[in-house]
């Protein structure tokens, strides 16, 4: 681990300002991902700004009937919140499908969104990785890519985003609230938070230098039946091969987002218009530009079949 300096943030504005002005600064909250990466020097922040003391751990109703989830709300608490369980069950289920109880007790809402990929080559400093070391190459492209993304990838990076929570938030049209280094705030759709890798896979979000996520806002409950179906090799504590977040209305219409297939939660509002009439057309639309290898081509079939299964689940639970 590289030596680093440390401070406790006193306010969101101060934290953002410091993060922008201190070279090599990073925020730390739950630390479940960052600290692991620091130990093996894949992350080497020169300065850590601990935001755990900030007043960002509340879940509050919004005036229009939605919920504002503070950036520091722990995954366990979010999954257990009665309003989330009642009005946004797809989110509660996605949270509980992720990680382990111990990790969920520490992991925060913002940290979950900003966690880094689990590509094994990213974690192995003896292998080239454009995300870890821009320009070094991508070992996964010619290597083992069963767990990797099949859409939204580039010749520089095929890493998948590992979050379950983010997939559910995407299907719920969540907004991300932030504060910038100059003290101004903004709200952006979660859809716009993560970048596709293109030629710069080390740049993973659209956040500015120092910009701090303060909350995720869920719009008013979408109704319908919620399903989160995560498919994986073992029953718990594994990343998704494919996951489907589905909010299905009584008339068969609804929303679909996929996890495990892309560098970000994967949804197409255009494609999902076909949900009631032709669910497979939704998957066709979502995966139309898929680039697969022999070891992950199964995800095309698996995504189709998992959506079918999720729809069947939704039907039977009405």
């Amino acid at each position: 681990m590289k030596p680093f300096t440390y401070e406790r943030a006193t306010s969101t504005a101060q934290a953002a300002a410091r993060a922008a002005s201190v070279p090599g600064a990073k925020f730390v909250a739950g630390g479940t991902n960052l600290l692991d990466l620091m130990k093996i020097e894949i992350e080497t922040p020169a300065h850590l700004i601990d935001v755990n003391g900030l007043d960002l751990a509340k879940i509050e109703p919004t005036p229009d009937g939605g919920l504002r989830v503070g950036a520091l709300v722990r995954n366990t608490d979010l999954a257990a919140d009665a309003r989330v369980r009642r009005d946004y069950p797809v989110l509660a289920r996605a949270l509980l499908a992720g990680a382990s109880p111990q990790l969920r007790n520490r992991a925060t809402t913002a940290g979950n969104l900003l966690q880094r990929t689990r590509c094994p080559y990213f974690y192995d400093p003896d292998q080239p990785c454009n995300k870890r070391e821009p320009g070094s190459g991508c070992a996964a492209l010619a290597g083992y890519r069963r767990m990797h993304a099949i859409v939204g990838t580039s010749d520089a990076c095929i890493a998948a985003h590992p979050s379950d929570m983010a997939v559910a938030m995407r299907v719920l049209d969540a907004q991300v609230e932030t504060i910038r280094a100059d003290g101004t705030t903004r709200s952006l759709p979660l859809a716009d938070l993560h970048r596709l890798p293109g030629s710069t896979p080390h740049l993973e979000t659209t956040l500015d230098a120092g910009e701090l996520v303060t909350a995720v806002v869920l719009p008013p409950p979408p109704g319908g039946v919620h399903v989160y179906r995560k498919v994986r090799d073992r029953a718990s504590y594994a990343f998704a091969l494919v996951s489907v977040a589905l909010v299905r209305q009584a008339d068969g219409s609804g929303r679909v987002a996929l996890g495990g297939v892309a560098p970000k939660p994967w949804r197409s509002e255009e494609a999902e218009r076909a949900l009631a009439s032709d669910p497979q057309a939704v998957v066709d639309g979502l995966l139309k530009d898929a680039r697969t290898s022999p070891d992950n081509a199964f995800k095309l079939t698996l995504a189709r079949r998992t959506l079918d299964a999720a729809i069947a689940d939704a039907r039977s639970s009405r």
């Binding site: 179906r229 698996l302 299964a309």
Partner: peptide, 8 residues
């Protein structure tokens, strides 16, 4: 699982 092939 008849849909996904997951074995438990």
């Amino acid at each position: 699982d008849a849909a996904t092939g997951e074995t438990r």
